[in-house]
Write a protein that binds this DNA or RNA. Structure first.
Lengths: 301, 301
DNA sequence: GTTCTCGATAGCCGAAGCCTATCGCGATCA
DNA sequence: TGATCGCGATAGGCTTCGGCTATCGAGAAC
């Protein structure tokens, strides 16, 4: 049985006339006659009483009409829904962002994203790199913003912008007197985030270290880390976008003597069909952050 | 778009695997791939993310699944309902019966009908001949039981049994002394039903008259007519099946000297598709009334 | 590197659906 | 009563579509 058959059935039942129903369906009258006959054979039920002038639905037919109608309308709902979903730049878009980036980047890009992609419903999700990738591979996220460079054959991505690291010092720290700071100078009393944050590893690596100060001084969030630095527990490296928050916390920022930083990338599954949306999101973010490196360096100076 | 396409869609969405979905649908994997691809083209929406190992429904797909499911289940409801309606001897059967027959015939045949046609839901409808035919032609009745012989090209029918007329007399009427009564003897003081009852015309015709006693003595129902006869207002002809009711009313019944009566027929529309049911109903009634003429004559004697 | 799995593609075949032309029946009208 | 009209059914031919088998190419696993 075919949806077409049901449409024919409904048309004949409505018009009580094969010719008019055929015209309404856009087919010839013989076509309709044959198909209705076939449907009657298939169902084993006479659907219409062909009188001299009219074709009247039988009692059996009338019991089938409701079901037929709901089948046809449901099928049309499929088409209608698909039509409204056709735009790849529309619909829900679940974007994962690492915690050392989200609070500082998202406020900058929400506006431009809403403007450029008005029908994309952006749903941010904040978690650490490994968790984000797991969710991405499980189709629970559509794309993620990462600061790491590893690649995988099942994933694709695009770099968006380079974010410099800045030295974050207590105001009374000896290094605060310098114009720029060498990473190795920080190594002595550097504080880092807890395990799992990519920034932890990157900061340690930049200073040429593999272990940090005592476990009791590992901060679980960048905000806490900044508060610890401001309180004089030590120094740290912060990502450039967090500069504003750091200064608000009363921290002195200094550029590093040699440029060091991380590259923010957007990453999606290689087979992700909404790839245009991911690329568009990336493009908007990249455009918003264009020329960001220089201005941040200027702010810090 | 086809119901088949929706079934395929549901299968792939459920199994998240083209090969297994194909096996579940009973088709080859290429068939499924092609049809899903076509559906995606038609809808303008990517339905599945084909990863290395699995095919995952996209967000858009998931929004379509409910509609697709309800379309498929509604279509299956059409088939299931049709299957349950397939028996032509099942379902509602609206039977019109004339008022001078219904109260006396129906009690006799309800039992046999229930027994012979257990899934036929008989709905009796009592009205005069003209009204019954109108409802029959309007598809508001499926068949009617009539006592008239006229035929029409759009109707078909079958005779069921012959019902004799009996002379109905007040107990003290002079004719009550005779063994049999001639119709013409009744003519003098015959009472008849009101306009519209076929029995009225038949009774008058039997007596060779065209007008009856004064209008004030036209009864609107056979029961009233019997009561009038019992009260001595006059005589009448009653159909044989009403003999019991007449005797209960205290009326003397006599057979007519020459057999006179009416033939009860069942009539349905020429194109009526449930004709087997109409014929079966007629057959059951005819069988129940077989040999009825003689026994009634015996009762009256 | 080899093998296995999975989905996509190619090429062919039969069924199904649609069309036009025509028929047959019944109703209507002259 | 015969001609005409309207309606649904039927016949024959064409095209499309959905199905199959065989095969390919990509990616994962051994």
């Amino acid at each position: 049985m075919n949806l077409r058959d049901l449409r024919y059935l409904l048309a004949v039942a409505e018009h009580e006339h094969f010719g008019r129903a055929a015209r309404a369906c856009g087919v010839s009258q013989p076509t309709l006659s044959v198909q209705i006959r076939k449907l009657e054979d298939l169902l084993g039920v006479v659907l219409f009483e062909r009188g001299g002038k009219t074709a009247t639905p039988t009692a059996a037919c009338r019991q089938l009409l409701d079901h037929a109608r709901s089948a046809v309308t449901a099928a049309e709902a499929v088409l209608a829904t698909a039509r409204s979903l056709r735009d790849p730049l529309a619909g829900r878009f679940r974007l994962g962002v690492i915690p050392t980036l989200a609070p500082y980047l998202l406020p900058l890009v929400f506006g431009p994203l809403r403007e450029a992609l008005p029908s994309l419903e952006l749903e941010p999700w904040e978690d650490q790199t490994a968790a984000l990738l797991e969710r991405l591979r499980a189709h629970e996220l559509d794309a993620v913003l990462l600061a790491t460079d590893e690649t995988a054959p099942d994933l694709m991505g695009a770099p968006l912008f380079a974010e410099p690291f800045l030295a974050a010092l207590p105001p009374d720290h000896p290094l605060a007197a310098r114009e720029a700071v060498a990473e190795t100078d920080l190594a002595r009393d550097i504080l880092v985030l807890s395990d799992g944050h990519c920034l932890r590893d990157q900061a340690l690596e930049a200073c040429g270290q593999t272990t940090a100060l005592g476990a009791s001084l590992r901060a679980s969030s960048l905000t806490t880390l900044l508060n610890m630095v401001a309180a004089g527990y030590g120094t740290t490296l912060i990502p450039g976008l967090a500069a504003g928050a750091a200064q608000d916390a009363g921290i002195v920022l200094r550029p590093l003597s040699t440029w060091t930083g991380r590259t923010i990338r957007i990453v999606w599954r290689a087979h992700f069909p909404q790839r245009p949306a991911a690329e568009a999101v990336g493009e908007v973010i990249a455009r918003r952050l264009r020329g960001y490196t220089e201005s941040t360096a200027a702010d810090a100076a």
